[in-house]
Amino acid sequence: MATTSHTPPTAPGAQPPLGLRERKKLRTRIAIRKATYRLIAEQGYDATTIEQIAEAAEVSPSTVFRYFATKEDIVLTDEYDPIMEASLRSRPADEPPLVSVRLMMVETLSSFIVTDNEELRQRTRLMVEVPAIRARMTETMSDTAKVLAQVLADRTGRGADDLKIRIFVAAVLGALREVTLYWGEQGQTGDLVAMINEALDTLEGGLLL
C-alpha cells in the first residue's frame, strides 16, 4: 500500500490496540507488501521474485514465506478482516443482516480508498491482468467468508457452517469480487462504493428486467 500506515485503520467497535509483538509482525507484513508493490510497478509481476522482495523489505526469503505462502498472497492479503469483523459486530443485533453487511462493506471500502487508494488500484489492475492472482483471490476470500460467517452465526444463533449462512456470505463476497473485477476491467472509472451499493441492491431486490 503506497499510503499504508504502520497500524491498521480503525472502525467502530474495533479491537484493542496491538501489543508490541503484534505491531512488529504488522510492520513486517506491510514492509513486505510495500516492497512487492514497488517492485511490481518498476519491473512487472512475473519479473519480481521472492528474493528481490526480501532484499527490498530487508528481510530473508524465509521470512517472506513465513508471512505469505505465495507471491499472490502478498498482493491479496491486507489487514481489513479484523476491521470488517469489528464493524459488523458493532451493528445492532436486530438489524437485517444485509443492511449490516452493506454498511460494513461501505465503511471498510471507504476507509481503504482514503488510506490505501494506490494499493487498491494496483491490486485491482493485477487481479485483472494476472490469472494466478484471480485464481488465488477465490481461495483467500474463503478466510474472509469464515470471519463473516462466524459473526452472522453468533447474531442469528445458527452454526457458522449453516447452509443459509454460507449462501448469504458467498453471495455478498461474490458480489464484492465481481464489482472489483468489473471496476478494474473498466479502467477503474466510476464510483466503486456506488457500484457496491448497486450490487447489493441487486442481491436484495433480484434481477429486475
Rank of each mutant, 00 (worst) to 15 (best):
A57W: 01
M195T: 06
I50Y: 09
S87G: 02
R136T: 08
L181N: 11
Q43Y: 00
T140N: 14
D81K: 05
S60A: 09
V64S: 05
R91A: 11
N117P: 00
E79S: 01
Q150N: 14
V128C: 12
A57H: 00
L39G: 10
E51Q: 13
L103F: 03
L76S: 04
E185N: 02
R123M: 15
F112E: 15
L98E: 12
L208T: 14
N117V: 01
G13H: 11
V179L: 07
K164M: 07
L103K: 10
P131T: 02
E22N: 11
P17Q: 01
A31P: 01
G205C: 08
Q122T: 10
R27H: 05
G174T: 13
L173T: 08
Y67G: 03
T156A: 15
I50H: 08
L163A: 15
P97T: 09
P96S: 05
R21L: 11
E204C: 04
T140V: 15
Q52K: 15
P9N: 00
R38A: 15
M137V: 02
I167C: 11
A86I: 09
V147P: 07
T108M: 04
L181S: 09
Y182Q: 09
D73R: 13
P16S: 06
S60N: 06
M127E: 14
E22L: 13
K24M: 14
V75F: 02
L26V: 06
L203A: 11
P17I: 01
K146R: 14
D94Q: 02
R121I: 09
E51S: 14
A41W: 06
L152H: 12
E55K: 07
E22C: 08
R123V: 08
E42P: 06
E22V: 08
S60V: 06
A171L: 10
I32L: 07
E129P: 07
